[in-house]
Design a protein around this nucleic acid. Structure first.
Lengths: 110, 110
DNA sequence: TTCAGTGGTTCAAGCATTTAAACCGATTGC
DNA sequence: GCAATCGGTTTAAATGCTTGAACCACTGAA
C-alpha cells in the first residue's frame, strides 16, 4: 500500500478516535472507568459513583456525558434510575486499528 | 488471572499512558504528527512545521514540547537547528498493551 | 396530592490550556 | 564585531474545561 494512502487512512482513524482519546486521557474519567469496571455488567448509578469517589454528582454526570458521547459507556433506565455501563462493543476498540496503522507507518518509514 | 489483578494492571497501564493519550487526543498535535510523518526519518525543524501549518512558532514549540514529554517525538541538534522526528520505539506502542488489557476486561466481565 | 429519591442542567467561579508578541541566548557568515 | 537565522521562554490575554450550588423535572410510594 502507498504511504500516502496509509497516511490518509491514519488521519481518518485519528479523526474518529479523537473523542475517545481525549475522553480517556483525563484522570477523573479514568477513575470513573475503573469504578464502572468494578461494577461489572449490571452497571452503576450516578449516585453510587459519587459515593465511591471524591467527585460531586454534577461532576460525575458531566464526565459520564463525555464518556457516553465518546461511545465508551452506555446507559439504561429503570424508572428514575440510570445505570451506566461500559459498552463492550465500544469505540475503545477503534483504537486497535489506530495503533496498528501508526505502528505500520512508524516501522516502515523510519 | 484474577479480575482484581487485571484491574490493577489496567490502572498502572493507564497511568503510564495518560500523557500519551492526552497528547494525541488534541487535534493541533495530531496535525503536527501528520506533518512529522510526512517528513520521514530525517525529521523536521520548528520553522518548517510552522510554515506548513497555520500555527505560530511558539505554538509549534509548545506542542512539540508536550509530544516530547509524552515520549512520542525525539529531537537531534545540528548546530542551531533542532530536528524533531517520531520516535519509532515510541510510548505510542505502550497503548497496545493498554488496549489489550481493556479488551480482556471488557469481553470477560460483560 | 404530597413527599422523598433520582439525576440532568444551568450558572458563575476557579483553574488550566493555548496563543502570539516580545524577548533571550546561541551560532554562523560576512 | 555585526547582522541574520534559529528556536526556546516569558508574559499576558483569550479561550476552554471543571466544579459545586442551586434549580428543574420526573417517578413511585404513602
Amino acid at each position: 500500500m502507498h504511504d500516502s494512502l496509509k497516511l490518509s487512512r491514519l488521519k481518518s482513524d485519528f479523526k474518529s478516535c479523537t473523542r475517545v482519546l481525549s475522553a480517556i486521557g483525563d484522570e477523573t474519567r479514568q477513575l470513573i472507568l475503573f469504578t464502572l469496571i468494578d461494577a461489572g455488567c449490571d452497571g452503576m448509578r450516578v449516585g453510587e459513583i459519587t459515593a465511591q469517589t471524591h467527585l460531586s454528582r454534577p461532576a460525575v454526570s458531566h464526565h459520564l456525558k463525555i464518556l457516553k458521547n465518546a461511545g465508551i459507556v452506555e446507559v439504561y433506565k429503570v424508572t428514575t434510575m440510570n445505570y451506566y455501563y461500559l459498552d463492550p462493543s465500544s469505540k475503545l476498540m477503534d483504537l486497535k486499528k489506530l495503533i496498528a496503522g501508526l505502528e505500520d507507518l512508524l516501522i516502515v518509514s523510519q
